[in-house]
Structure formats: C-alpha cells, structure tokens
C-alpha cells in the first residue's frame, strides 16, 4: 500500500513539473477550440446577415447594351447578377429587351411584370417567384412560371420551356408561340387560349391543360395528354388535339365544341361532359390511329 502511494505521488509530481515547463496543453486546447467555434459562428452570422439584406427595385430595364435600375444610369450587363441573381431581392418590373446575348439567370422575385424580348433567353431559377406578375414572352424562358393572379402571354416566336400555372390569370399562346410543358393545375381557374400554330406539348404522364376556366384552341397543336376539368372547351380551325393518354378532353363542366379539327386518343376522345357536345367537320378517332413519328417518339420516351 505504501509503495503504491509513493508511486502515485511521484507520478503526480512529474505531471506538475511538466505542466510548469509548459509541456502539457491541458488549458490551451480548449481555449483554441473555443476561439475556433466563436469565429465560425461569427462568420456564419455575418454571412447570413449579408444574405438576408433583401432589396426591392421598382424597375429594372435590361437592353443588349446594359441595364438601368429605377431609371438610373446604364450599367454593364456584367453587374446585373448582383440585382437579379439574389433570391432575397424582389423586383417590381423586370424588362428584358430584344436580342440580349448574355447568360442571365433570375433568382429574385418579380412582383409586377416580367417581359422577355425577341431573341433574348433567360433562365428562371426555382427561387424566382412570379406570383402576381404579368409575364410576356417573345423570346425564351427556361424554367417554371407560376404567375398566380397575373397572366402569361407567349407571343409569336416566344417559348416557355417549363410548366406554366396561374390561379385566376389567363394563359395565351399566339401563333408560332410554344409552351413546352403543362399548363395549369387543380388550383387554376384562368382561361387558356391557343392561337393558330400555337403549340402546347406537355411531358408524358401529366395532363397538358388543367383549368376550371375556358379552353379555346384556334388551330393550335396540343399533344401528349389531355384537356382536363375545363368549364368549356372549344377546338376550331384545324386544331390537332393528340392525346397519347386514354382521354383527350376529360371532365368538362360545360359544353365541348369541336369544329374543323382532329382529336385522337387511346380510349375516348371526349368523356364526362356536363353540357352539350357539338362536333362539326371534324375527325374523332380512338384506338389505333396513325400516329406521326414525333408522337411515337414521345411514347417511347414515356415508356
């Protein structure tokens, strides 16, 4: 017992001597860790403080030679990203002119209107909210557009490559315009109008047009799925409604009018209509139909 106590005493004495010589880091190690953690927290706090500084700009007008903010001086396009590229920012009116050849991705919210000129292409990031904004496209938008009460208007030559939804706002596709995505969802009540040569082509597996509003197609091409839940449907003047799904026009609350148009589907061209169905100078075909090559290609992709 005494020998053990003596050994312990000698061991403790050696530790004390080592501590006095500074050979032990018993105190330094936790001090460094504390400083490190403090610096990390400070850095993170600074970072998030900077990111959360939301800015609002009433108007940003972009041309091929530069842009101006709230009517100010023209700035180079290389500085645009600091305004439109911050998801914390919001912009009332964001206008892109024609023929802007510069990579632009919008992360900021747009609250009033968004317009994209002919020959200009922009990308809408998923952070970019457009609820309530009127969207007019003569160029190209890549990304989903959710305009809420605002409208979405695709002019001739304009393209939206993404899904388009509104709540009460209308969606229109002019002659030569295109929406490569679906239109609407269960919350949409806005009307949909597609002019001659307008194209709407949704991805397989989703209805092409879903709205409780009226759907009027004047000679446009609607392909891949169907028109669902509309208050009324009117296809006229050479419209081709090609559904690779079971139904082409499904669950219309009011009347369906098909005039000088073609409707094809696998099982039923028009099903579940609350009002009258009027078919004039048209061909309605279900089952095996002479599918064009591009439609067969889309079916293969879906399967």
């Amino acid at each position: 017992m005494r020998a053990t106590q003596k050994a312990d005493s000698a061991y403790l004495s050696s530790i004390a001597r080592a501590a006095r010589r500074g050979e032990l880091n018993l105190k330094k190690t936790p001090r460094i860790s504390f400083i490190t953690i403090f610096l990390m927290i400070f850095t993170l706090f600074t970072f998030f403080s900077a990111k959360s500084e939301a800015a609002y700009y009433s108007t940003i007008v972009v041309t091929s030679s530069g842009f101006s903010v709230n009517g100010g001086t023209t700035q180079p396009l290389s500085s645009l990203n600091s305004y439109v590229g911050d998801p914390a920012n919001s912009i009332g009116i964001l206008s892109f002119g024609d023929a802007i050849v510069y990579p632009i991705t919008v992360y900021a919210d747009i609250t009033g209107s968004l317009s994209v000129g002919s020959g200009t292409a922009i990308t809408l990031a998923s952070d970019a909210g457009t609820s309530g904004a009127d969207v007019t496209v003569s160029g190209t938008i890549t990304g989903n557009v959710a305009a809420g009460t605002g409208f979405v208007k695709v002019n001739s030559g304009g393209t939206i490559s993404g899904n388009v939804t509104t709540t009460t706002g209308f969606v229109s596709v002019d002659s030569g315009g295109a929406i490569n995505g679906k239109i609407g969802d269960a919350a949409m009540s806005g009307n949909v109008t597609i002019a001659s040569s307008g194209i709407v082509n949704s991805s397989a597996g989703t209805p092409t047009i879903t709205t409780t509003g009226a759907v009027n197609i004047y000679g446009g091409d609607v392909s891949n799925r169907k028109i669902y839940d509309a208050s009324s449907v009117s296809l006229t003047s050479g419209t081709d409604l090609l559904s690779t799904g079971q139904y082409a026009i499904d669950s219309t609350r009011g009347n369906v009018k098909v005039e000088e148009s073609n409707v094809t589907a696998l099982m039923s061209a028009i099903t579940g209509t609350g009002g009258n169905v009027t078919v004039t100078d048209s061909d309605l075909t279900v089952g095996i139909w002479p599918a064009p090559i591009w439609a067969l290609s889309s079916i293969r992709q879906a399967t």
């Binding site: 099903t271 169905v277 078919v279």
Partner: peptide
Amino acid sequence: MGVIQYTSGNVN
C-alpha cells in the same frame, strides 16, 4: 369505351 361518352347534355 366510346369515342364520345358520358355526356349530360346533347350530342350533335
């Protein structure tokens, strides 16, 4: 299944 089916109103 019909080409036109389940119509509440008239079919013309």
